[in-house]
């Protein structure tokens, strides 16, 4: 139980970090990187698909509960995009560095597009603004995953090949 609980606690802490005033108050970032999404992606890549599914569902529910409006868009997008990424991952024997970057781009897009469409239908937010939001969101997540794999594979020399 405790073994599984740690994954949920980490996801919860990542959401807390993501919501911290540091990003907007100190770094003045308009878009905050989605650490929870990167974590789910990392779990998927590290062959913890089952846990990734539940962590994806938990993160989605938690984000929806934190949403001021009653919605299920995060639960839907996080859970189903996790399933999709697991499906894609299983089609390959192993993903190299570039493929991992492509996969996180795809993952971020799958998560962000339903949210953008949802907010577009809610009120006609300009397309330009939405594109900027999606663009930077994907870029931030890709940069984080790049650094994670750069340090774990190249710096810490954990490459098994």
């Amino acid at each position: 139980m405790i073994f599984y609980l740690k994954y949920f606690v980490i996801a919860y802490l990542l959401v807390v970090i993501q919501s911290n005033v540091f990003f907007k108050g100190v770094l003045k970032l308009f878009i905050v990187p989605d650490f929870a999404l990167v974590y789910i992606f990392w779990l998927t890549m590290e062959d913890k698909e089952n846990i990734a599914k539940y962590v994806g569902l938990f993160t989605g529910i938690f984000l929806d509960l934190l949403n001021p409006e009653k919605t299920f868009i995060n639960t839907f997008s996080y859970f189903f995009s996790t399933l999709y990424i697991i499906n894609i991952k299983n089609k390959f024997i192993g993903l190299n560095f570039t493929l991992k970057l492509l996969a996180i781009v795809l993952f971020s897009l799958i998560v962000s597009i339903p949210k953008t469409v949802y907010s577009f239908f809610l009120s006609n937010v300009s397309l330009n603004q939405s594109l900027n939001l999606i663009g930077f969101y994907v870029l931030y997540n890709a940069v984080i995953i790049y650094f994670i794999y750069y340090f774990t594979v190249f710096v810490l020399k954990r490459d098994e090949i």
Partner: peptide
């Protein structure tokens, strides 16, 4: 005091 912002980039809210 403002202690946090929404973790979701698509929502403009704070805590």
């Amino acid at each position: 005091r403002v202690i946090a912002f929404s973790p979701d980039n698509w929502v403009n809210s704070f805590f």
